[in-house]
């Protein structure tokens, strides 16, 4: 579904992604793990068109993705960014409605119901201003807004960063539900234990290069991963 080949991205003179290749099959739940600064966010921003790339291929359903973020959204690739980027002065409901922007004037009550079923707290907070929500609620709203665009491929960048364990659990369960409903997920996650619990296939990104790919079981068995990322357990 998503195929990235030999992707090179620069910030000024800094060579951030050095020939990244990865693929995601329809219906998969894939995670990209790696330490802070490895290039996970840059990879996601490049896929969704927020950052341009100098060299390499990004293909979605066997056709190259356009460069303009708005066009990429229309192809069904929706990015839920690090830092959420909500519309802070709008209500929860208005944020969700903006999420359905690409569908113009169509009826979105079904989509709203689906989001409210996943995150019931958003229904309670429907009229609350987004900026005043707690961190966990804001993250749920960011995921909900992305779902309103009816993604075929959902890019989730660090969705549980800095959240309480109980909120993290609720979001992790929602992600499984979203994936079971047929949405392909590509997740960026710094916390390797979380990523190995959620995803079915994992890429390890270190200083701009994919150094390992495998199932969570293979990762848990790997000496390097255990020592560096799982605290030697």
């Amino acid at each position: 579904m998503l195929r990235i080949e030999n992707l090179h991205v620069y910030y000024g003179k800094a060579h951030v992604l050095k020939g990244v290749s990865l693929h995601v099959a329809p219906g998969e739940f894939v995670a990209v793990i790696g330490p802070n600064g490895a290039g996970k966010t840059t990879l996601f921003r490049t896929i969704s068109g927020l950052k341009e790339h100098h060299h390499g291929v990004i293909a979605f359903k066997d056709a190259p993705l356009p460069k303009d973020p708005a066009q990429i959204v229309r192809r069904g690739v929706i990015h839920c960014p690090e830092g959420r980027h909500l519309f802070g002065d709008m209500t929860v409901r208005e944020n969700l409605e903006m999420g359905a922007f690409r569908w113009d004037h169509r009826d979105m009550s079904d989509d709203l119901e689906r989001v409210y079923a996943l995150f019931p707290v958003l229904r309670e907070r429907e009229r609350q201003i987004a900026r005043t929500l707690s961190g966990g609620e804001q993250q749920m709203l960011a995921i909900g807004r992305a779902l309103m665009g009816r993604p075929e491929l959902l890019l989730l960048d660090e969705p549980t960063l800095g959240l309480a364990p109980i909120v993290r659990k609720a979001i992790a369960e929602a992600l499984q539900q979203i994936n079971q409903d047929g949405v392909t997920i590509l997740l960026a996650e710094q916390n390797v234990a979380f990523a190995l619990a959620d995803a079915r296939r994992v890429y390890l990104l270190e200083t701009g290069q994919i150094v390992k790919v495998g199932t969570p079981e293979e990762f848990r068995a790997d000496e390097h991963v255990r020592r560096v990322y799982l605290g030697g357990v």
């Binding site: 973020p69 708005a70 903006m98 999420g99």
Partner: peptide, 24 residues
């Protein structure tokens, strides 16, 4: 109006606007 809301959304978060498909 819908266009007004699009303008407000862009004012509040340009990147968020781009990621819901608004041509900034």
């Amino acid at each position: 109006t819908r266009w007004g809301k699009v303008i407000l959304a862009t004012a509040q978060d340009q990147e968020g606007a781009a990621l819901v498909g608004i041509n900034v």
